[in-house]
Design a protein around this nucleic acid. Sequence first.
DNA 1: GCGGCGTATTATGCATACAAAATTCTCCTT
DNA 2: AAGGAGAATTTTGTATGCATAATACGCCGC
Lengths: 233, 233
Amino acid sequence: MNQDLQSVSPSMSAETVAEPRLLVEEVLERLRDLIVQGELAPGVKLNERVLCERLRTSRTPVREAIKFLASEGLVELLPNRGAIVTPITVTTVREMFVLLGALEALAGELACVNASDADIAEIRALHYQMLAHHARGELAPYFRCNQQIHLRLVESTGNATLANTYRALNGHVRRARYMANLSRERWDHAVEEHQKILDALIRRDGALLPALLRGHLGNKMLVVLEALGEQAD
Amino acid sequence: MNQDLQSVSPSMSAETVAEPRLLVEEVLERLRDLIVQGELAPGVKLNERVLCERLRTSRTPVREAIKFLASEGLVELLPNRGAIVTPITVTTVREMFVLLGALEALAGELACVNASDADIAEIRALHYQMLAHHARGELAPYFRCNQQIHLRLVESTGNATLANTYRALNGHVRRARYMANLSRERWDHAVEEHQKILDALIRRDGALLPALLRGHLGNKMLVVLEALGEQAD
DNA sequence: GCGGCGTATTATGCATACAAAATTCTCCTT
DNA sequence: AAGGAGAATTTTGTATGCATAATACGCCGC
């Protein structure tokens, strides 16, 4: 959904007039990172005064950013009692993965039709980069590539609304993922799935790709739910 | 996404202590209605002072509500220039319907598994009520029933995340719909589709229902795009 | 009459002030 | 010592103040 406050397009020209970014945007981005990366853990209370000191602003931008994040679902508003980081429950994780599965399946279908050859080439490059990290056992970089691939795929559909919705949901799920202690076996399996996904995309197989993606997401869900220490169904 | 600020659960007991609603909530709800119902037309500037007078508050709650709606996508923030009601373009309408189609398809699939018999009975009742309005040519009540049916279907999946995402997107689309000047022919056709949808739901036909819903949404899209005065592809 | 420049006005963004609600702490009772 | 009433403190929600960016207006030249 949110279209403005996050696309900052960090232009690299030396003479950018340094468009003075709005404070709310700054705070919003920073808060979101803190939450997604788990530094502000699920369930913790957001104390405005503390956040103000940490972010060096007054309460106004902080409060406005919190409202934004509330709509995004990353924080929950408790009337007269401020806000907390939205707790992660087995139920919501499961719900979100089901939804993400459907979104990625749609993305796969659309990508087969709408993605440019350049889009696919870029995803292919990311895929091989990811394989390298897998081979070296570099988990964090692997995850980054992985995320990039999925995001690029969704973006290659040309459907910005889809991409925005995906990003928002993905933010939530990523919070849960940092605990996902991938076994080598599962990891290898995920990589295999990615290979099939890439192949289907290159062949623009609009029937197969959605199914592969949905299955892939289903497996991701199992991993995360396992990490949450709960039986998945 | 947004889970708190809209579920107000208007308890009907005579002795509800009248929990003093937060002003932001009030403003948020009111603003959202104004936008969804088109009273604040797409593209118009949101002047804080004017809104404050209209809603009898200070700027703070208004500004916070606007941030919330920005994340929801109903308004766009223009740095240093306030906010406008998100314009409706052919592109975004098309994008949203594609997305809605996938969401409802997913909902159909899940509903066939998870919906209770009571859920289905309720949808069935709404369906017949809708038929009545159709027979009498009562367009507005027809639309209300229609909305209700789709919403109930999505809710009957038991996937709250899905339902929230659906609601947000649907809000956008509804803004475009008030212009949809349904021809009798198209109207009849839509009703036929709804009949098939209901039948498939009752039979819990998890293979057919998603396809029907997706097709139905596709047709809705055509109607709306037509009304937007633009060729759909 | 039209266009452009400089000023006046307005609107926005951020900070702060104030009131009410929630929380914490204290101290008393049992 | 545990529990609870009540005051003190903190925190939130809302209003307002102030600085700056954007806009509107008027004036002048052409």
